[in-house]
Design a protein around this nucleic acid. Structure first.
Lengths: 298, 298
DNA sequence: GGAGCATGGTAAGTTTTTCTGATCATTTTA
DNA sequence: TAAAATGATCAGAAAAACTTACCATGCTCC
């Protein structure tokens, strides 16, 4: 029923109008003049009406041609717009990534990383939200974000995990605490003191130090509150080094030596689903930026 | 720079999505499955990003593909819309004709003709305006209308005239006028009476009867006023038969026998300019409808 | 667990489309 | 009137698109 109007002949027609003739259009299009003539004739046959006046020497539109011209222009412009946008996205010059990260990474690592990414890929919009590791996991799984930066990953067939860095677990206490002068600790050294559990405490599970958790009666999820407790000297806690905020003058971080514990922080994405070009750019960027820094030592 | 996205592959992609697979799409498109596969692969290469997930068995879009789908849909729909509209116009199923006619034709002939045209070509809009013959001539010349129906045509290189019918000139007078009982008149028979000139009086110019005009002191351009004058018995006038309104019970039309005068009524159009499809339909319709009726005898 | 039936991908050859180069007929320009 | 420019035409060449036949893989159902 509907003949298929190819875009090239439409361009030919527009070029003829813009350049004022078949010959000029052919040159502009890097085609031979017969190619233009034949394409136009074919188009006219498809439509069943001539577009150009046959009489005179110059290329003049018929009334039907005049009706067609603006529509052809719009259609070609529409094509070019779609094409340009698609290419910009494909080439990672535009787009959007939604990522999620655990709070420590979001606040400690992402600022510098995102600054670099924004510079390397201007035009890509970024949305970063934080959540505890299970929440990050869930957001990736449900497709709420394309990428997650998290630890504590239970092997899952539908998710893919790329390790980025290892983060040592240690003890945090006030600088006047008896443990504060140590360089490394055995877990039993903590037994005498009040242990405040927090969202990262489950990292101790499965290790000898897990016994400490059973004797702990205080759980604080919020990091601000937790540091306030520690500054008040209420007790000590365990934290990954990255989650320890160095800005606090009176708090000290002492690595656990026995058992040596660490969390693996890595990039999470859906396994059998490719990333958007923008997310792919972010993925590659994060991998290369954090490639060398297997462990966090400062 | 911009790769040319042909519409066919976009349709293939949409067909794959709508039918849920390459095979089903191929059948729906009356193509072989490899043709669809190759077209999609080519499209993906042009864009630089895959549109479909390669892993699983089913055809699933990548995030990039999901971004593309609605734009492809819109673009294809836009094409089809332009295509359909252009065809409708080319096939004279839609469109618009602007025509002009001298008042006698506009009021006596056009009603029936347009009724028939509207039935034969529903969907075509018509604009009809009337004016004296010079005005019709000018409107056609300036492109204000595509077709004119007029008499009194001075040969002109840029205009083309197709004769439609001959319209006898006669004398109109009240039924109690001395001339009213005649069947045919010699121009001299008018000399004793008051002659009212009107817009068609110049048709006498160049004939022996032109002498009558020099003795006429009354000119009425408006037809309503003119008939009122005639009904009042103020005088007689000359009119083409078509311009004589038979509805007036008290007025009579007596053909001029010597000289026998007539006006040629015909279709006027620009010479070296083709018509819009709608106007072409009107042109052909008027020619065929009025082809047999060379002269008006009732 | 393997036959059978889907899925989509690959390769070689054919058909269709599109383009070129040479040439022609007209019209416009100088 | 000669020269230059316009677009149209045709046969053959180049390019694109398609088809048939075949392969690899994943899923379903005895």
């Amino acid at each position: 029923m509907l003949p298929e109007l190819k875009l090239a002949p439409l361009r030919y027609v527009l070029a003829i109008l813009d350049s004022g003739g078949f010959h000029a259009a052919a040159k502009q299009l890097h085609r031979s003049q017969p190619a233009v003539s034949m394409a136009v004739r074919d188009l006219e046959e498809r439509l069943g009406q001539p577009l150009f006046e046959k009489g005179g020497g110059k290329a003049l539109l018929t009334p039907f041609g005049r009706w067609c011209e603006p529509r052809f222009r719009e259609l070609v412009a529409h094509h070019d717009r779609v094409c340009r946008d698609a290419l910009a996205i494909a080439r990672q010059q535009r787009g959007r990534v939604d990522i999620a990260a655990v709070p420590s990474v979001a606040s400690r690592l992402m600022p510098a990383l995102l600054a670099g990414f924004l510079e390397a890929y201007p035009g890509i919009d970024i949305s970063l939200q934080d959540g505890h590791s299970e929440r990050v996991n869930e957001m990736v799984l449900k497709g709420e974000v394309e990428l997650g930066i998290t630890s504590l990953w239970l092997p899952d067939d539908t998710l893919r995990f790329d390790a980025l860095l290892h983060d040592d677990i240690g003890v945090v206490c006030r600088d006047d605490h008896p443990l504060a002068q140590q360089n490394a600790l055995h877990w039993r050294a903590l037994k005498p003191y009040t242990l405040i559990r927090n969202g990262t405490s489950r990292l101790l599970e499965g290790s000898p130090a897990a016994e400490l958790l059973t004797h702990s009666t205080l759980y604080i999820s919020n990091m601000i509150s937790l540091t306030a407790m520690l500054e008040a000297g209420i007790g000590v806690t365990t934290l990954p080094r990255l989650a320890f905020q160095e800005e606090h003058q009176r708090l000290r971080f002492i690595p656990l030596a026995t058992p040596r514990l660490e969390r693996r922080i890595g990039l999470l994405r859906r396994a059998r689903q490719s990333l958007s070009p923008a997310a792919d750019a972010m993925y590659g960027y994060l991998l290369t930026q954090l490639a060398g820094r297997i462990s966090l030592k400062r």
